[in-house]
């Protein structure tokens, strides 16, 4: 299962101020056929989120200008209701405050740093295939069409 299965690549936005994390995840996801957009802080991330409407956002928590939590909240305010998305947050420690905050949020999951790129890829493809399956239920014709293609 990968992003290019339908010929129309799924978009993934990666937000991190550490360039090597961006590079590694971008390569891993692109090799599996996803279209990857990168941003270097929360503010940049939000701008690119609105511009590209990705299916998955992978983000660091601590970043300059706007942190991951604030960005997530802004994304919720600016989201397109017809375009659900998953947020994968990368964090070195899941402290209590973050844990309590996350409990109230939806479509969010955490991975511990150092992240395993394979693990992140698995999360992304699991979510995308779940998304496709739920679309298939709502709109069975679309699935048939995809198969023909």
């Amino acid at each position: 299962m990968n992003g290019s299965d339908t010929g129309n690549a799924q978009k993934v936005l990666i937000v991190d101020d550490e360039p090597y994390v961006l590079r590694v995840l971008k390569m891993k996801l692109e090799n599996s056929g996803y279209e990857v957009i990168t941003a270097v802080n929360g503010k940049d991330g939000l701008k690119k989120f609105i511009g590209s409407r990705p299916s998955v956002v992978i983000t660091d928590v601590r970043m300059p200008l706007m942190d991951g939590q604030e960005m997530y909240q802004m994304m919720q305010e600016h989201k397109d209701e017809n375009k659900p998305f998953l947020v994968i947050m990368m964090t070195s420690t899941i402290d209590r405050a973050l844990h309590l905050w996350a409990e109230k949020m939806e479509n969010i999951c955490f991975v511990e740093k150092p992240v395993s790129p394979r693990n992140v890829l698995n999360l992304v493809s699991q979510y995308i295939s779940k998304l496709r399956n739920s679309n298939a239920v709502a709109c069975p014709d679309a699935l048939v069409f995809e198969e023909k293609v």
Binding site: P114, V115, S116
Partner: peptide, 20 residues
């Protein structure tokens, strides 16, 4: 070369994750 280093780094991340 950058791709090679990125691949190498990705492998190291995997390894580090395992060791943790």
């Amino acid at each position: 070369e950058a791709d090679n280093i990125t691949q190498e780094l990705s492998d190291k991340y995997e390894e580090l994750n395992l060791i943790y």
